[in-house]
């Protein structure tokens, strides 16, 4: 059983890592096509995408949209979670259900609904529209994580602060937020990741200023090239560095 376990582990790791490894290797392909045979190493594809204006702008756009939409989703989720954890309101269950609901709906449907509504009220497809969509998908996530993180201990601490005469915003800012820092960080990190990598909402709700996944998609549609591998590898590399850094700092203490 022991050998079987290890064999299984290795086999599955192979399956999981195969496409990524291939992607990275052929980003160095010295030729027009990122398929075997491997013709030698070149960095020209990396140079090409790093000097690609549209690609770099898309990168910047993605960062801005991910950052701002996650902050908004986090703030709304935090307020809602502390509100619902504080008192039992009439219809609490319905409210919770409503806040969670977008999580069970395909992104495509959310995108299509927003596209039609924005069309009607005359909001142009833009990064703003995309950001609004990303808050819709990330709000449930942030809310759920934070709501789950507020336990009895936290509730009594908040109550104590209020009984001592703290104002509501003081309670939230000085007591609740510091207490919930790990959950806030986790929620923000997840929301950021989802927004950063989201395609269909950004595809349908942008026009000229696009996010990185949309730019990669149009690059993919306009010709086969190792440059696509290079973009993918770069994004992968940077993300892994961030994840490992977080793993070593932020989440180390919180984990078992």
């Amino acid at each position: 059983m022991k050998y079987l376990s290890w064999a299984y582990l290795v086999a599955l790791f192979g399956f999981i890592l195969l496409p990524v490894v291939t992607l990275v290797i052929f980003s160095f392909q010295d030729g027009r096509l990122p398929v075997p045979p491997f013709k030698g190493v070149t960095f020209e594809w990396y140079a090409e995408i790093l000097t690609d204006r549209a690609m770099m702008e898309a990168l910047g756009n993605s960062l801005i949209v991910a950052l701002l939409s996650s902050l908004v989703a986090l703030t709304l989720g935090f307020l809602a979670a502390s509100g619902l954890a504080r008192v039992v309101l009439p219809g609490s269950v319905v409210m919770r259900g409503l806040l969670i609901a977008p999580m069970t709906v395909s992104y495509l449907i959310i995108a299509l609904g927003l596209l039609q509504m924005f069309n009607k009220v005359g909001i142009r497809p833009s990064l703003l529209a995309t950001g609004i969509g990303h808050v819709v998908i990330n709000l449930p996530l942030c809310f759920a994580i934070l709501y789950a993180a507020i336990g009895e201990h936290q509730k009594s601490a908040l109550k104590a602060a209020r009984d001592l005469g703290a104002r509501e915003w003081q309670v939230l800012w000085f007591v609740a937020a510091p207490m919930l820092t790990p959950a806030l960080a986790a929620a923000f990190f997840l929301a950021f990741t989802f927004s950063w990598d989201e395609f269909i909402i950004a595809f349908l709700l942008t026009r000229f200023d696009v996010t990185l996944p949309v730019e990669i998609w149009s690059m993919l549609r306009s010709g086969l090239s190792p440059a696509t591998n290079a973009v993918g590898s770069l994004v992968f590399l940077v993300s892994v560095i961030v994840v490992v850094a977080l793993e070593l700092t932020l989440f180390r203490k919180g984990s078992k």
């Binding site: 599955l12 790791f13 999981i16 890592l17 496409p19 990524v20 291939t22 992607l23 990741t193 990598d197 989201e198 395609f199 990185l212 996944p213 990669i216 998609w217 993919l220 696509t228 591998n229 973009v231 993918g232 994004v235 992968f236 993300s239 892994v240 994840v243």
Partner: peptide, 15 residues
């Protein structure tokens, strides 16, 4: 085991 999560989603299918 979850490393490829952090490649771009579009790129994952392409690879």
């Amino acid at each position: 085991a979850v490393l490829p999560f952090w490649t771009s989603y579009v790129v994952r299918s392409y690879s």
